[in-house]
Design a protein around this nucleic acid. Structure first.
Lengths: 145, 145
DNA sequence: ACTGGATGAAACTATATTAGTTACAGAGGG
DNA sequence: CCCTCTGTAACTAATATAGTTTCATCCAGT
């Protein structure tokens, strides 16, 4: 995962949640217009979200995307899990020197520690839902009008 | 920051902490041998660590690097802060559609939320020090001998 | 069946990022 | 003054990212 993907995924889900209030679906092209990018990029991320059962696609006439769960049931931890491809911190690209006590021993230590950090991150992300973001986004608009 | 930089920075600091126990310093070339990379790459990261007062360089004969603070005083939050160049999550690369209520409102919401997530990450990272990592790395070696 | 709008996926490009490499001026203890 | 190492710039190769084009596939409605 690149770190913008999470932002795009959240934008997509909040955008779908908005039309879901009217029991409507939305196409990747329409979402792309909102995000200001191209539909294929949106579809690639939608594909990841679909595999994690966060969104569902409808084919045929009146086709488009809808949420697979209610917005208050989708946490940002779910979203992060769905689109993450890389861990938050990577280990060395090339294997460290095994003749050095640090080079030999540090990777397992860091690997364990990083997974611990990711758990803490997930705990934090789990406290917020797509419904929360939609609410905050809309209410911040009202203040300006 | 790329996500391997944090790993390399920790490797560097733990490696320096190891020789610091013997009141010695270590050169970027020696560190590069341990990390299994080139000295310039190491120096670039050392440069960031130096700016945050985590390491100090000695010139002249017997030159090399040492810690600017005791290892139990350097938390991983300090290290992360020193080398991070990008936030953990980026916003959109191109500005979203301002005619869409979501496109218009989501960036400030996410910006605030992301800084909140970073604070949680720092709290987690602050609980571990370079001394902790050094201890774990060495004790994991003993188990294998 | 057929149509039409949308998806899924592959292929390709342009740009940005990352790590590696070379080179050389500058620092400073002996 | 010497010697070793640092600081930094410049360049390259490899990889990652987002954008674009293309086309087969899907399926509700007619």
């Amino acid at each position: 995962m690149n770190n913008t993907h999470f932002t795009i995924a959240l934008h997509i889900l909040v955008r779908i949640a908005l039309v879901a209030e009217k029991n409507k679906v939305i196409t990747s092209k329409e979402i792309a217009t909102s995000v200001n990018t191209n539909p294929v990029f949106i579809r690639r991320i939608l594909s990841s979200l679909e595999k994690s059962n966060l969104v569902v696609v409808q084919y045929g006439t009146g086709s488009g995307w809808k949420l697979a769960q209610t917005p208050d049931n989708i946490t940002l931890s779910d979203v992060y899990q769905a689109i993450k491809q890389k861990p938050i911190f990577d280990l060395h690209h090339s294997i460290p020197n095994q003749n050095c006590p640090i080079g030999k021993g540090i990777q397992p230590v860091l690997k364990y520690y990083y997974s611990d950090v990711e758990k803490a991150l997930h705990s934090k992300l789990a406290k917020t839902t797509v419904a929360d973001l939609l609410g905050e986004t809309l209410s911040s608009q009202e203040l300006h009008s």
